[in-house]
Computed example of a mutant assay.
Amino acid sequence: MHQGIGLDSFNTISRGRAVHALYECCCNVTWATTIADARPFPDRDALLAKVDVELLALSQPDLNRAFDAVVHEQFSQRVVTELARITRAHIDTMLGPSDGYPDY
């Protein structure tokens, strides 16, 4: 649903929409809320660094639920590094190109 919105739009959309967009990337409300509340991000690297830090903070039950939500993805083990790889790919899809896709 939230594809190609660009970092600038992500930084300025409502908190609710940001949480929803992030939830689509990792399927964890606490994680999504924490990332949304850390906005604005100066660049994609800063966002991804925060993403990684907060993924490392997830409890094992939260990790298990996140993996259960991405069963359609390819992963070798249910470890945080695999979830980070999947989540980063989803965030890349969410953001799209650096300026996002144009509104039509």
Rank of each mutant, 00 (worst) to 15 (best):
Q60L: 12
V51I: 13
Y101S: 05
P97M: 03
V80I: 14
R39S: 04
C27Y: 12
E24C: 02
Y23M: 03
E54V: 08
H72T: 15
T12H: 14
A69S: 14
H90T: 09
F10W: 10
P102R: 06
I91L: 07
I86C: 15
G96Y: 08
I35H: 00
N64D: 15
P42M: 05
L63V: 13
A69R: 12
A89F: 04
N64Y: 09
R65T: 09
T81A: 14
T30G: 12
H2K: 08
T34M: 07
T30Q: 05
D68N: 15
M94S: 13
E82Y: 00
F10L: 15
I5Y: 03
G4K: 07
S76W: 03
T93N: 12
T33R: 08
G6F: 05
D52N: 12
F41H: 00
H72C: 10
L56G: 15
A36E: 00
D45A: 00
A69W: 09
T81C: 12
Y104M: 02
A46H: 01
Q60M: 11
D43W: 02
D8G: 02
L58N: 00
T81P: 05
C26Y: 03
D92C: 10
L22P: 04
A36T: 01
V53M: 13
I5L: 08
N64W: 12
G100N: 11
C25M: 06
H20E: 15
E54L: 13
I5V: 08
R88F: 04
V53L: 15
E82G: 05
I86S: 12
